[in-house]
């Protein structure tokens, strides 16, 4: 157990876990109801890490970043940080079917179309997940535009995004799967450490409200 883990009590971690479970359930429901996008999100895994460890940790979870595509998007509110969606390279081509009949695809190569559709879909998934978490915590967040990285760019982008600062990060990992397209990927959320005291307070509020503690 790392030193940073003690920044959150086991109870707080449990409550956060519950908040995440509910949020992701609602996000998945929202995605299917609102835009007919059927996504399964696995039970999220939560940890508190030193900021500098994040890049290494993500790379450790992904077998081969050289064969992946990545979309990142920053969010800011009381709860701020980055969300990272990682797909095996080529997986996005399956999602192109989502746009069937809507696209005039002539003249563009598949890599460009794959990139554009991953950005569009990732933006929606990230928006759904983050907004539900924020809502549960009584926050409203805004988002920066998504950015796309492919293959060998991923490693550098991760390193640059999470270079030191000495701060720690609350780290969430989940797997998501598009049922009808047989496509899957990883979703990571890294909340920046500045949100910790606010997060602890929100967790306390949540406990009071729902657990009567």
């Amino acid at each position: 157990m790392s030193e940073t883990a003690s920044l959150m009590t086991p109870l707080e971690k449990d409550v956060l876990q519950e908040i995440m479970n509910i949020s992701f359930g609602q996000a998945a429901a929202g995605l299917s109801e609102v835009i007919n996008l059927y996504v399964t999100l696995s039970v999220p895994y939560i940890d508190v890490l030193a900021h500098g460890e994040v890049a290494r940790y993500i790379k450790g979870k992904i077998p081969d970043t050289g064969e992946m595509s990545m979309v990142t998007q920053m969010f800011s509110g009381n709860f701020s940080g980055s969300s990272i969606l990682i797909f095996p390279h080529g997986e996005g081509k399956k999602l192109l079917r989502l746009f069937n009949g809507e696209l005039g695809t002539e003249g563009h190569d598949m890599d460009v179309l794959e990139r554009e559709s991953l950005i569009e879909i990732s933006n929606i998934i990230i928006g759904a997940c983050i907004s539900k978490i924020a809502e549960m915590l009584g926050d409203v967040v805004s988002y920066s535009p998504p950015r796309f990285y492919a293959r060998e760019q991923i490693s550098d982008a991760l390193r640059e995004s999470f270079e030191a600062e000495g701060a720690f990060a609350i780290f969430f990992k989940t797997l998501f799967q598009f049922e009808e397209y047989d496509a899957r990927g990883y979703l990571f959320m890294v909340s920046n450490g500045a949100a910790l005291s606010w997060l602890k307070q929100s967790i306390a509020n949540y406990l009071q409200k729902y657990a009567g503690a």
Binding site: N123, I126, G127, P145
Partner: peptide
């Protein structure tokens, strides 16, 4: 629904 910034 999600209050996000969307692209077209």
């Amino acid at each position: 629904s999600f209050g996000n910034y969307a692209f077209f």
